[in-house]
Design a protein around this nucleic acid. Structure first.
Lengths: 195, 195
DNA sequence: TGCATTTTGGCACCCGATGCCATAATTGAG
DNA sequence: CTCAATTATGGCATCGGGTGCCAAAATGCA
């Protein structure tokens, strides 16, 4: 996969720097009011290499998500527990990442990104994100006792609901932790009979 | 809003016919492998008027959603009940529409559209759809007793979860009704404590 | 010095989408 | 009947995201 050899022309462009520049522009002017040409100019690279480093505009926002996806992959493969229900999925997948957001600085960065999402929903259509969803769903589906509600149904609904809760938290959840918001939302969804 | 008068050049293009043609092409070749130019040619209109009738490619898939949105608007304005919780939202908003899917023919059309969604998630980024979500969310937020979990949080999570359940139903829910799948999924989401 | 290797960036092009404008087809008023 | 107002159509140019192709630069290695 990686060349590892140091032959060839060395890479001049710094992807993380470029992503930082882009994120700054997005926050200031809005995601879709910033053109790839402007980002390229602001980062002092050509439009062409910008597209080579970040094949889509969304990749600039989701920079770093690949590593999260790898962690989720690893966690999914490692998990040997049989009975993995909703509470288990939250404990094993959501909590380890959400706890990072206890750090106010990390929380603020996460909020910035999530607010970008709310303003430009096209960002949700992102392959690594879809793969994380699918990983959680299939892992859960394989480890849930059958007989009750179809596991794939629960899994996909759970992931969607969790993301929605996170988006809400980014905008209105100032007082509470991301994890608390997620738990509260999931708990409130059961359609208890009323008059 | 509407001209109502019959002056001016009569409309030659038939939007519903065009949408049908487009839907057929999408099913056969996949949403993003069909170009607007091809649709225009297949429907015997110019690319320009195609874009005037359907400002975005997604509008071809979501043709007719505006009327659904109007119904939801009306329903939201009419609803006078105070305490409108999760079960109430399902009863007042989801059920009236999901019941239409008891008709096998309507169910098959809905499945076609939802399967298109699963294959091209960009279709989910559609203004009328967002407005329906927002309508339900704000209606619910205004009628839920405060004190417990923030209503806007519950509302947005509920809508996201319901859509996810519908998408699952379109692909794997052959045996069951759309409403049953939704209910089952929501009920299973509460994180009951386990070991 | 040359050669393989890798990055860079320029160019042309595709596709979705938008603005502008000339033109066609109709109704209604004189 | 004639003409103006009105509405739909479609051609043209342009923009922005995205891709393929290819030549030029910059390095390690023989």
């Amino acid at each position: 996969m990686q060349p590892a050899t140091k032959r060839g022309r060395p890479q001049e462009a710094d992807p993380r720097q470029i992503a930082r520049v882009a994120l700054g522009l997005f926050e200031r002017h809005g995601f879709d009011r910033v053109t790839m040409g402007e980002i390229a100019e602001a980062a002092s690279v050509s439009r062409r290499t910008l597209f080579r480093l970040f094949p889509s505009k969304s990749d600039l926002v989701w920079d770093g998500l690949d590593e999260v996806r790898d962690l989720v992959r690893q966690r999914a493969a490692t998990l040997a527990r049989a009975d993995l229900r909703v509470a288990g999925v939250l404990r094993e997948f959501a909590e380890p990442f959400l706890r990072r957001l206890d750090d106010p600085e990390a929380a603020e960065l996460a909020r910035k990104r999530l607010r970008l999402l709310a303003a430009a929903p096209a960002l949700l259509d992102h392959p690594p994100l879809r793969e994380i969803e699918a990983l959680i769903a299939t892992t859960m589906a394989g480890r849930t006792p059958s007989g009750d509600t179809p596991p794939t149904l629960v899994a996909r609904t759970l992931v969607a609901a969790t993301f929605a809760a996170l988006m809400w938290w980014a905008e209105h959840g100032e007082g509470m932790s991301a994890l608390a918001a997620t738990r509260a939302a999931l708990g409130a969804l059961a359609p208890t009979d009323e008059t």
